[in-house]
């Protein structure tokens, strides 16, 4: 009998095993309690174990009779640009203020596309910053300072 290995299936199953196992191990550091009065660790431990078991089943199935899925290319540039942009926003919005943070985050996100030119990216970032300021700060009265303490204003 020919085996149909499915790499995506194995990756997905392994992810479930690892995450489920991590949650289960983590729950052990909390009080488990009794079924009558469950501690904080009881429920996550149970679900974590169930999930790791499901993950194991997916791995086994992936090795024997996996689903036919092509994983495809990974757009590393887009992944990096978007993660950096989002984390930058979260980290600096309080420190740099709404306007500079939005501008830099929008600019970084725009770079995720391989076909964007520098001038276009700057223009898009400027336009989005203006739109975001009008919608969120002027329109919705969001209470975030426009310019933050890092700028010394």
């Amino acid at each position: 009998m020919e085996r149909r290995r499915s790499v995506p299936d194995v990756i997905a199953g392994a992810l479930f095993v690892v995450i489920g196992g991590a949650f289960a191990v983590g729950s052990l550091s909390y009080s488990l309690g009794t079924p009558l009065r469950m501690g904080p660790g009881y429920f996550p431990l149970a679900v974590g174990v169930i999930m790791a078991a499901l993950g194991l089943a997916i791995v086994v199935k992936g090795l024997v009779a996996g689903e036919d899925i092509t994983f495809g290319a990974i757009p590393w540039r887009a992944v990096a640009a978007i993660v950096v942009a989002v984390v930058f926003f979260g980290f600096t919005v309080r420190r740099l203020g709404f306007v500079p943070t939005s501008f830099v985050a929008a600019f970084l996100t725009t770079l995720a596309s391989t076909r964007v030119r520098l001038l276009t990216a700057l223009a898009v970032a400027a336009g989005l910053t203006l739109a975001a300021t009008l919608i969120f700060v002027v329109g919705l009265q969001l209470r975030i300072p426009l310019w933050g303490p890092w700028l010394g204003l």
Binding site: I82, A85, V86, F89, G90, V93, S102, A105, A106, T109, T110, A112, S113, R115, V116, T120, V124, A125, G127, L128, A131, A132, I135, F136, L140, L142, I144
Partner: peptide, 19 residues
């Protein structure tokens, strides 16, 4: 255009979530 839309989605989503 998508070059404007996806940065807008990311930016507005970040702002909206933060708010």
């Amino acid at each position: 255009p998508y070059a404007v839309l996806f940065p807008m989605i990311i930016l507005f989503a970040a702002i909206g979530t933060y708010s």
